[in-house]
């Protein structure tokens, strides 16, 4: 893939490396992340564990499929889909995925795994909350989940950069994310449509009924 595209993806995927933001924020985020792993991982049934691991791997691989866009290509974040499929279990999966990426590919950082997980985990969590609002039409819910799944982490990242003395300029860059988030919204909508047609069980609220 072209370097220009890689840089844009890097910017959009929000992998903060070590040393970029304030050390205190990184440490605090790690502490909160560990607490959230225990909360989100409570009462995990044994059959959920392989699904979490395998879905995490699929999430990573699917996010590597690059979509040609405006002369370059964009890797989707798939946080909305993570929220829809994994629900509250998305956080431990995202944390593990980011830890894996930082160790194996040096994407992001070891110390900033916590802050990256909180950003992306919050995106997936809010997407899940939106997905649960049954009074909204399903495809609109899906598109919103995809859109919010990108915007929430982008906003959190801007706040973290601001707290690390980067100034307010970072908030102006949020406008870049709106385009990516809109694309992600459409993508999530089409993925949900595909699931609804081929394997609706994957969209159900409990994992027990997914093996239909």
């Amino acid at each position: 893939m072209d370097v220009y595209g890689s840089l844009i993806n890097r910017l959009l995927l929000m992998h903060i490396a070590d040393g970029i933001i304030d050390l205190r924020i990184s440490i605090a985020a790690n502490v909160v992340s560990v607490a959230l792993i225990y909360v989100a991982g409570r009462k995990v049934a044994p059959d959920e564990i392989p699904k979490m691991g395998v879905t995490g791997a699929a999430l990573f691989v699917a996010s590597l499929v690059h979509i040609p866009f405006a002369g370059t290509s964009i890797h989707p974040g798939l946080l909305g889909i993570a929220g829809i499929i994994l629900g509250k279990r998305a956080f431990p999966v995202i944390f593990t995925l980011l830890l894996f990426q930082s160790l194996v590919f040096q994407h992001g950082g070891l110390l900033s795994v916590g802050v990256n997980s909180l950003n992306m985990g919050a995106g997936a969590f809010v997407a899940w909350l939106i997905w649960r609002q049954r009074f909204i039409p399903e495809y609109l819910r899906a598109a919103l989940a995809g859109f919010i799944g990108i915007m929430v982490p982008a906003l959190l990242m801007a706040v973290e950069f601001h707290l690390s003395d980067y100034g307010r300029g970072i908030f102006y860059l949020l406008s870049v994310y709106v385009v990516a988030a809109a694309l992600e919204g459409f993508l999530t909508l089409f993925v949900v449509k595909f699931f609804r047609k081929t394997k609706p069980g994957i969209l159900s609220r409990t994992w027990k009924s997914h093996d239909d």
């Binding site: 395998v54 791997a57 499929v65 595909f194």
Partner: peptide
């Protein structure tokens, strides 16, 4: 060059990766 809905084609590919992984996870378990 893709003339049809580009995002839809790529979305379907991603959904397919998810579905295959999901089915495999059941066998793995």
């Amino acid at each position: 060059k893709l003339k049809m809905n580009k995002v839809k084609v790529y979305s379907n590919q991603m959904a397919m990766i998810f579905l295959r992984s999901w089915e495999r996870s059941v066998m793995i378990y």
